[in-house]
Computed example of a mutant assay.
Amino acid sequence: MEQDEKLRISLVQYEIAWENKQKNLDYIQKTISALSGKTDIIVLPEMCTTGFSMNSHNLAEPNDGNTITSIKQWSKQYNVALCGSYIAEDNGNYYNRGFFITPTDEHYYDKRHLFRMGSEPQYFSAGNEKVIFTYKGFNICLLICYDLRFPVWARNVDNGYDLLIYVANWPASRAKVWNALLTARALENMSYVCGVNRIGTDGNHLNHEGGSKLINAKGDEISAIGLNQEQVETVCISKAELEHFRAKFPVWKDADRFEIM
């Protein structure tokens, strides 16, 4: 019998200090240090060092800037993968850029669906490439916040990924949507889904209550952080359990294939 691959995932729900990179980086480092040896992946919210700011011109950094340089250093130092998003500058354009940094590799995803109600398209460029990568035997797809509303973009074709991660700054006023769609993405894609959201009031006076959670392919919450709590919760997921369910109930074989033009 093949060995069951397990993955420990830490959901980090906290109040992001508005546009204060150093304060947020200090918090992140402290959190990573406390989790050393206890987890495989640490998932942070969207724009984890600034909050959901449209001040891209002043806050953006290249991939070799302080934010990603620090993340890469901590990943190696503490032997853990780090995931979140930050405000990136690349060839004169600004991106809400997701990162998944491991001690030996790095992966980036530029948010495709920009939140027009928050004026995001005026200050950022949209990405056009879905990224799937492998870490410790799991195929992983990283998406960002508003992407959650668009199921075709998240479509899991032939079980291409095992874990779908959403990092977010999702307001409390739309918590019902957050909860419903995270579960829907898990069910329709027969995948683990991890959603990590911030708490607190941001610089735009929007309140966030968190609701970070990890859901299995059957739609069961196997980890959930309480509302408005700054908390870290670590959960272990099983590749064998997922593959057993996919084999026993192979809905994915009858799924429609969609093509984005």
Rank of each mutant, 00 (worst) to 15 (best):
F99Q: 09
R112Q: 14
K111R: 10
Y94I: 01
E120P: 02
G98L: 09
G92Y: 06
Y108M: 08
P103C: 00
S85Q: 03
V131F: 05
Q77G: 00
Y108Q: 11
M117R: 13
M117E: 13
N79G: 03
D105C: 01
S125Q: 12
T104A: 14
G118F: 14
D110F: 03
L114Q: 05
F115L: 15
F100P: 02
S85F: 06
L82S: 00
Y95I: 07
E129K: 15
K111F: 01
C83A: 11
S125I: 08
E106H: 08
S85L: 09
N128M: 11
Y78T: 05
E120I: 03
R116W: 13
H107C: 07
Y108K: 01
K130P: 11
M117D: 14
S119G: 05
V80S: 04
L114R: 00
Y95R: 09
I101E: 01
G98R: 08
Y94W: 08
S70F: 09
L114S: 06
I71L: 12
N91G: 06
S75G: 13
H107S: 09
P121R: 01
L82P: 05
K130T: 15
Y95A: 07
K130Y: 05
Y123V: 00
G118R: 11
T104I: 10
K111W: 03
N93A: 15
P103E: 03
H107Q: 12
D90M: 10
Y78L: 03
S85G: 07
Q122D: 11
P121C: 01
S85N: 07
S119P: 02
Y94R: 03
D90S: 13
V131G: 02
I71G: 08
N128A: 11
F124H: 02
Q77N: 09
Y78C: 05
Y86A: 04
K130A: 15
A81M: 07
E120R: 02
K76H: 06
W74H: 09
D110I: 02
E120F: 15
V80D: 10
E89H: 10
R112C: 12
C83Q: 04
S119M: 15
S119D: 11
G92P: 09
E106R: 03
S125T: 12
G92F: 06
T102D: 03
I101D: 13
Y78N: 04
D105L: 05
A88M: 13
D105I: 02
A88L: 15
Q73E: 15
P103W: 04
Y109F: 14
F115A: 14
Y78K: 07
Y123H: 13
H107M: 08
Q77Y: 04
T104W: 10
N79K: 12
V131R: 11
S70P: 04
Q122R: 04
G127R: 00
F115E: 14
G92M: 10
T104V: 11
Y86D: 05
F115C: 11
S70N: 14
P121A: 08
R97Y: 00
S75V: 04
H107G: 07
V80R: 00
E129A: 11
